[in-house]
Amino acid sequence: MVQTKKICTACGTQFPISYTDHLCAICMEERQYVPAAGQEWTSHDILLKTHATEIKQLNDKLYEICITPKFAIGQRAFLLISEHGNILWDCIPLLDENVIDFIRSKGGLKAIAFSHPHYYSNMNDWADLFRCPVYIHKNDEPYISEKGNNILLWEENELPLWDGMCLINIGGHFAGSTILLHTTMSEKGTVLCGDTFYLSPSMKHFAVMYSYPNRIPLPLKEIKRIKEQVKNINFDSVYGFYPYQNLPHNAKEILMDSLERYLQ
């Protein structure tokens, strides 16, 4: 029987053929969880038969990429269109002809970058297909299930890219948790954050936690550190983990108020 790479149905992480553990290493970590029904696996070939990618334009520089019907934790990726090279921000574990053709029609990818390990999915397949590097903060290196040749680890607090874009290591949720700041997408700047910052359904509060599903908070000293760091970043818009987490106005004010509420 031909062996295939396994994808965890709970978190969407793909593991190499050599991975023989019964449980997903990402779900076993305390920021995620193994479902009560038990560990289940699938493969990319199966996903191609049961799911599809869905692409939605959010503005003239930003496209949302999701999987339908919902798979794993329902994460979304973003395609940022930029003059000197496009970026895929975060990743989804399905790479079908729809999204491949769409990205190629927009000029391909110059790089892939990540907010945190719950998005790594099948990143090496994306990087191999589009022949581009994958930027991951070195603090999160232990969570890489398969270290492909395209992975580039960076260690600084900030990593300037091109066309007014920059990766910023915020920490908190994971030590390597990162945001992407795009300085020209909105009047004051736009942040793509995964769930480094987690916008509430009310659109009036951001959570910043060690584990969201397990409700484990961060120490107050860490919240204070993050607040001091965010204070020096200019932005007014945020796009987060889920499709509803689009906040085009007053995002920094809401985030700073939320962090202050934690400290009080």
Rank of each mutant, 00 (worst) to 15 (best):
R215V: 03
G164P: 08
E253K: 11
K221E: 14
K106L: 10
A36G: 07
M185F: 12
M256K: 03
I103R: 02
A111I: 00
I151E: 03
A175K: 13
K6T: 08
S43A: 11
Y120P: 06
K224G: 01
C166E: 13
F206Y: 05
L159E: 11
V2H: 15
E83K: 12
V230N: 10
E158Q: 14
G171A: 08
D140K: 02
V99G: 01
P16T: 05
Q32V: 10
Q57S: 06
C24I: 05
A52L: 03
H51V: 05
N86Y: 02
A77P: 04
W162L: 11
K61C: 11
G107M: 02
L79I: 06
Y239M: 03
N150A: 13
H249M: 07
T20G: 00
C132N: 09
N98P: 00
I168S: 02
T50Y: 10
S18M: 09
L199I: 01
N86H: 04
E64V: 05
K227S: 15
N157A: 14
G171F: 07
Q3F: 15
L167I: 05
S105R: 07
P219Y: 00
L95M: 12
E83L: 04
K224N: 09
S211Q: 08
D257V: 05
E54L: 07
V2D: 14
H116L: 12
I46M: 09
Q14R: 15
M203F: 00
G171E: 08
V2F: 15
M28V: 02
P35K: 13
S145P: 09
C11M: 06
P248I: 13
Y212E: 09
F174Q: 01
E187R: 10
L255A: 00
W89Y: 13
Y63T: 09
V134G: 11
Q229I: 11
N234F: 10
L88K: 03
I73H: 01
G107P: 11
F102P: 02
S82I: 03
K252D: 01
M165A: 11
W162M: 13
F235P: 07
I103V: 09
F174A: 01
F78D: 03
I233K: 06
K147N: 14
I100Y: 02
N250H: 14
A25M: 14
T178W: 07
E155V: 15
R215Y: 01
L79G: 02
Y210P: 13
A77R: 00
L79H: 02
L153K: 02
S43L: 11
L192A: 06
L48N: 12
I170A: 03
I65D: 01
T42R: 01
E253M: 06
I233W: 02
K49Q: 12
H22M: 00
E141K: 15
I216P: 08
P248N: 14
L167A: 07
P69A: 02
Q75N: 13
K49I: 06
W154A: 14
L48V: 13
M28W: 00
C91W: 00
N86L: 02
P133C: 10
D96I: 09
D236P: 03
Q3I: 10
V2C: 09
K227Y: 10
K106R: 15
L263S: 10
S258H: 03
I55G: 01
P217T: 04
Y239V: 14
R225Q: 07
G148H: 12
F71T: 06
F15C: 12
R104P: 00
I46G: 04
T178S: 12
